[in-house]
Nucleic acid binder design. Structure first.
Lengths: 123, 123
DNA sequence: GAAGTCGCTTTCCTTTAGGAACCTACTATA
DNA sequence: TATAGTAGGTTCCTAAAGGAAAGCGACTTC
């Protein structure tokens, strides 16, 4: 808590840092992407579509996304229990942001590859 | 290396993941932001403007940004030595992306705050 | 002669994220 | 009886990131 306060004190000069922490921490964009592509779905469906995520981490990320208001969780007290996850309106408002990133990626990512090769060639 | 390959196998379904790794890994946006705000500058100037970064990490990040083609490094063999860093054209092409993030932040970040409070209140 | 400047590098240490494997209660199915 | 499926929780462990502090070479300043 105190550490976070000190860090943010220096990082607040970068106004996009809160959004980065929110949206671009590990696994959050893949999860949101899967939810966007395949709509409302259950825990195990998400897990199957993200083959390398462990259930522990998936739970952690989904809880965080739920707390941040980006994912809605619906619990059905059936047997066996059923839980469904979906993007919220707030998360949907991020879609244009993602599209901007996809556009940049398509336009410029190969330049990054070139730069890396050039850098590595030059030792 | 092998691990990275396995990970990307499952994360490539999220097409913005390479950009996220590139631009939104820790400290990269604050560094780019400082370079954008204050233009071409020296190592110690960046360090002073990011009070909590350690020189080791700043060096690591600058090298990575240089390799990725986002930052240009100019070395002057004077005594004491002088080094200047600046954004490349490639990095400047990211500015609209950053602005999209700032816009989203201004429009929606308070909703995230509200969602967190609501979640925490509900235990 | 001591200290400061610059752009790092090196070493050591702590923190943290994340993976693996196992566990839960309950039921339907084979 | 055994197995599978449901949505996770728990424990243990390791790899990696990152911070703190010291040092370096070559020179200038006090």
């Amino acid at each position: 808590m105190a550490k976070r306060a000190i860090v943010s004190q220096s990082l607040d000069s970068c106004p996009i840092n809160p959004v980065v922490d929110l949206v671009f921490s590990r696994w959050t964009t893949p999860i949101l992407w899967v939810l966007r592509l395949h709509g409302r779905q259950r825990f195990n469906e998400i897990e199957r579509r993200l083959p390398t995520i462990s259930p522990k981490v998936l739970t952690q990320r989904l809880r965080q996304l739920e707390r941040d208001g980006l994912v809605a969780r619906t619990y059905y007290a059936e047997i066996p229990p059923r839980v469904e996850y979906e993007m919220t309106q707030l998360a949907l408002s991020l879609v244009p942001v993602f599209e901007t990133l996809v556009d940049w990626s398509e336009a410029h990512l190969h330049e990054v590859e070139q730069a890396r090769h050039a850098y590595d060639e030059a030792i």
